[in-house]
Write a protein that binds this DNA or RNA. Sequence first.
RNA 1: GCGGACGUGGCGAAAUCGGUAGACGCAACGGACUUAAAAUCCGUUUCCCGAACGGGAGUGCGGGUUCAAGUCCCGCCGUCCGCACCA
Length: 843
Amino acid sequence: MASRFNALKADAAWQAVWEERRTFAAKDDSPRPKSYVLEMFPYPSGKIHMGHVRNYTMGDVLARFRRMKGMEVLHPMGWDAFGMPAENAAMEKGVHPGAWTYQNIDTMRSQLKRIGFGLDWSREFATCDPEYYGHQQALFLDMVEAGLVYRKESAVNWDPVDMTVLANEQVIDGKGWRSGAVVERRKLSQWFLKITDFADELLDGLKELEHWPDKVKLMQENWIGKSQGLQFRFALSDGGEVEVFTTRPDTIFGASFVAVAADHPLALKLAEGNPEVAAFADKCRAGGTSAAEIETQEKLGYDTGLTAAHPFDPDWKLPVYIANFVLMDYGVGAVFGVPAHDQRDLDFARKYDLQVRRVVSDGAEEAPEFHGDEAYTGPGTLVNSHFLNGMDVVDAKREVIERAEEGGWGTGTTVWRLRDWGVSRQRYWGTPIPIIHCETCGPVPVPRDQLPVKLPEDVSFDIPGNPLDRHATWKHVDCPKCGKAARRETDTLDTFVDSSWYFIRFASQPDDKPFDKAVAEQWLPVGQYIGGVEHAILHLLYARFWTRALKHMGKLDIAEPFAGLFTQGMVTHETYFRDEGEGRRSWFGPDDVEISGKTGTLKADGQPVTVGRVEKMSKSKKNTVDPGPIVEQYGADAVRWFMLSDSPPERDLEWSEAGIEGAWRFVQRLWRLFDGLDEAQGDDAAEDRALDRKLHQTIAGVADDIEALSFNKAVAKLYELVNAIEKAKPSASRANAVRTLIRIVAPMAPHIAEEAWAEAGGDGLVADAEWPEVDPALIVEDEVTIAIQVNGKLRDTITMPKGAPKADVEAAALATDKIVRQLDGKAPRKVIVVPDRLVNVVA
RNA sequence: GCGGACGUGGCGAAAUCGGUAGACGCAACGGACUUAAAAUCCGUUUCCCGAACGGGAGUGCGGGUUCAAGUCCCGCCGUCCGCACCA
């Protein structure tokens, strides 16, 4: 009789079998159709968290399902292993970043295996393996040769205490996040990749990504930020020139000033001889960059005393300002101000009492005087604009660009918001940039036969700064060109470079080169990529760029790396806290509190705590749940099942004790069915057509749902089937349904499925079994319930054979008691019959 | 400010093409089994009136299109996300 399903035993046993038989190793030379399922690889921070579990469960279900459908599936795993946390750990705990990282990898690998993910571990690598980053260095040199890399002075956030460069996110209120020191802006010579060369392609390519969420495509589109307009020159009163960019050349006769950024060459030149200008420029640069600060920041300008001559009227002189709202790194760092039709220009003009001239009319008003404090930026007709009068905005833009080009003082231009990708990081734990700096020869690539340029092991983190820089010997090398003493580049590559091509290396990893073109192309593009939406812009854009760069260099004939993208929601949990006054708040973990209904008490002192919002699991709010003990308690299948249940995968999933228990109960319910298989049939070999239908509808429905990644719907369908089987009387159909159920749940709950498969005498592993075939005759009902409405309100239902003629359905509907009563002897005015669905009687 | 998504029971959610709103799960309640509990099983569960048969209302709010609207259109309100002085 039914025993309990021993998850711990079954999990371990089947995981061992999969590993031993290399069940999930993908074969490059397989004749089966290929499918590449990939989840974003993790950063080895220590332990896996629930977010990983959810992400990898989704991918695993799809990968296992596709295998059962007869595909050769590549489902690999590796480690995004370079990055700052390892250096922080080195500083705090005195361990080597490599030792720390590899130890974390060992822990996390065994945790992933413990959940039974069907991964091809034979292709595993970490980006900090010299074998990996050596090939990455080679690709970097390829890009250098292809002219896609250059060196430029660029400003960075410099922490003077930690002697390190900070990312923008590490600067909080102008101070370093670790040291608290006021951050300085320093100019350093840094390496850049020419992603802007591909801006047009990256934008256009989005259109072909049919299986990407619109949201992500839109975010990338905005990030790339294509603007078309006119770049043109003003002659200055000192005999010089200033160039500006505008997307609104149509409003050229509404100009009332010219403004340049504080870092603009013109401003820098003026600052040299004038301390007042220099002071003003400094003030502009000091301004904060946070959202709130920009919102409230006053428009400030410094009148240079220079004037600019209007290109269409040399006698019309416009004042030239240095202004804090003009950005040096967008366009050309200078604008002409049209206050009536641009809000910033209007704010500025009102403050400095400049002319505000209407040149676009919305049809209501045409007078040159523009009143009010809200600029008009909508469409309309040009007014007060000489030869442009009467044109609409679009025509006027074209007209002005044409005249500027004819007159030789301007050109129609496209400007991008996207900047080139600065890849230099002044850190140890990253891929060394394979360049040697020679006083005579300049930057020289490291000869290929000397790759990889390995990180030195003997480094210390007890003093601030980059250990590569102060290493006694590492950076001192001879110039490969002239042989004189030279210096290695001590910067390392941005870790986003590591993740820009790892999916190619998974597909093909020869020893002698980054990848084999033909082998990689067999697998690529990734069919389904799954990860967090936080990577919607940077990682996904960089990987798209890298792939296009490889194509450009003829190394890989793939335009887009990820054909399908899915961004899953986060795993969340309630928060518990106490306000300690002065805005301070202490947070408590789920294990520290006792919850009853909407109130909670702290176990430690029995006093109440506030039950806060449901938020993303995070260490800072202490609302994390460690998957490790949960898997030990409930088994891998219950955890997987819960990850797939209830919430649509793109939405957040709230972790709850009740939820995981529900999943566990379902696993046990499955086991009672599987284990009672012998008795299911009983003595009765009769068929149960209704159950047969339900089974085949479920096989088809679950398959569709898994392909659509709608796991919550697949779960619901499985509950329905299990309910139906449990209610059904013993029959051959019932026994068959239970036997088939083993395969339907296999992608989601693989351990119990293997156990049941073996017990039921299945051939080989259920992981290698075929997805059950659907009998098309059984997925359609032979009877349908037809709704009967009177004036659109449901009044009754009738059951009819499927496909019954309209006339029969109408007659049957009108004959029911309830409808007869509703009509009260009157003839209906109209009857609408939707076959197999409903009848609407219009009375 | 700009761009986008979303809003359905106590909760997570279904409703695939405009056609029976609330499938499925959680929680709750009632019952069976048990010395008792757990587990399991049976039932109820959108709201209001009603013992019941039944009736009315109902998918953020206000309008509209339609025989028929959660779904389409217009206008609000709210929540969340992304970008942010981008000329």
